[in-house]
Design a protein around this nucleic acid. Sequence first.
DNA 1: CTAATAGTGTCTATAAGACAGTATACT
DNA 2: AGTATACTGTCTTATAGACACTATTAG
Lengths: 231, 231
Amino acid sequence: MPHPPVHSPTILCTVDVVLLTLAVDGLQVALLARDRAPHAGALALPGGFVHPGEDAGTHGAAARMLREKAGLHSPYLEQLATFSGPDRDPRGWSVSVVYYALVPPMAQDVGATSAVEWHSVDRLPPLPFDHTEIVHQALARVRSKSQYSSLPVHLCGERFTLPQLKAVYEAVLGERVNQVSFRRRMDELGMLEPVVGELVGGAHRPAQVWRVKAAHRTGVSLSARVLGGER
Amino acid sequence: MPHPPVHSPTILCTVDVVLLTLAVDGLQVALLARDRAPHAGALALPGGFVHPGEDAGTHGAAARMLREKAGLHSPYLEQLATFSGPDRDPRGWSVSVVYYALVPPMAQDVGATSAVEWHSVDRLPPLPFDHTEIVHQALARVRSKSQYSSLPVHLCGERFTLPQLKAVYEAVLGERVNQVSFRRRMDELGMLEPVVGELVGGAHRPAQVWRVKAAHRTGVSLSARVLGGER
DNA sequence: CTAATAGTGTCTATAAGACAGTATACT
DNA sequence: AGTATACTGTCTTATAGACACTATTAG
């Protein structure tokens, strides 16, 4: 069977980004009002076409989406999966390479000029295309990976206390984490270093401030075992 | 910044499949001599262009590659990742959605008319494009996932003994597996059922024959913990 | 001193691995 | 009976969780 022409004109190649952060009421996802058809005006994941002349790969395209649409640079940006089919986009047969990114809460304000709306992942509005399914898969990945890795540190600012980081883990995993196990785990991962300054916790014993060692800023550290929960 | 025309003509959209099986000397990957430029004649992963008119998605396209190029149907076919960039294919900016598949050794013969060559993953010939990197990532995924799931059962035929299955796990993981832990794990996963017939092991006590329960034929069962090895 | 949170020491529970024992076939 | 392999009982070891204790701050 002969192949179609090399430059197949009928496949749309796009990139979408599930940009997550953490607020007081849990994980939030960044949504943006679409500025063109289809679904003009509807809230959707930041995304767009891959620009072959501009992007070095889909990862670079995803980073560009974050820069152009949310006005920020995310140190953690990982491929989630690729979604495709004839019906997910009314314009035609489409392929969307989806990435997910985690940013600390403060990063929201950096791109304050952008039109990003943050929505709790527990109260998602209806989303166009297959974006609801995409967000659910991203959440599943983040929760699963948080069980055995340092992923959640990317939801913290540059400096944080262990009780703060523990609260972040609990917010992501949706369950309490054992304090002793947590501190043991963070020690074993060996990616945190104490900062000599301290931080008052309300009006009580102040907690040690930590930060991620330079070597671990962009990736994640993995553990062979799991903190709480089930896979 | 305006988007390019909807039907961007400059992105090649392809699918590649890392098809794995198990031989006496370990995991083997299916390679096929390319029948056209670029790299005509070179051994490469089975793959090809997505056909929008024919494929319901990239998963379907990968299944079609297996059918057309290897003459077989794989019950286990999962997305690995998507590879992209301007330089990986000399024809231009390309996106390849890569899947991996596991088949039992006998399945090789079903597609005997095909030109598939099986190569040990430990002695890969030089591969074109970024196929070497792709195979390595697929192996890493299979090995990692085998630690906490039933993935390797797809490398067995329909009926097998537990000692046989244990040997498959050991071949994939590249290390010995504790016998008691292994049997406990298989019991907990609860996806195997005994077949009343038995099977002679050389000239000694015969082993019980098992098969995967119907409900678990196509997917994998997951365990919260890990068998040997480190992540 | 009290209250409240940070951090640690230590016991318990659970699950994986080691090892040796029993079971069952063939020669 | 001998032997090789299948299978199991049970002890040991490793690690996560529970719980209580100490530490340090403000008021």
